[in-house]
């Protein structure tokens, strides 16, 4: 079982976590027409490469961001979300 490092709880088997999907910065609804909004809501960055993802450590209730290579299943880093780190 893979090890994932929770920024608060440290390295843990991945079974202790819930996968929260791709990290997507909050959108401004006013800026998008209907079709663009429909795409933004449904479309994802599913291609191979490093992705920013939400992960949740269930027992402690901790959400955090993991940068993970979805081809190698390699975690580059994990950190707690802040607007500065999240939305860049």
């Amino acid at each position: 079982m893979k090890i994932l490092t929770c920024p608060l709880n440290g390295p843990r088997p991945i079974q202790e976590f819930h996968y929260g999907g791709e990290f997507r910065p909050p959108l401004d609804p006013a800026q998008l027409n209907d079709a663009d909004w429909g795409q933004e809501v449904h479309h994802r960055h599913g291609e191979p490469g490093v992705k920013r993802e939400w992960w949740y450590h269930t027992a402690s209730g901790t959400w955090f961001i993991a940068e993970r290579d979805n081809l190698q299943d390699r975690v580059i880093q994990t950190y707690l979300y802040t607007p500065e780190r999240g939305n860049d």
């Binding site: 949740y56 979300y81 607007p83």
Partner: peptide
């Protein structure tokens, strides 16, 4: 509940 925690972070 889990989703609320996530929105809480995003909304700051």
């Amino acid at each position: 509940y889990r989703e609320l925690l996530r929105w809480r972070q995003l909304f700051q």
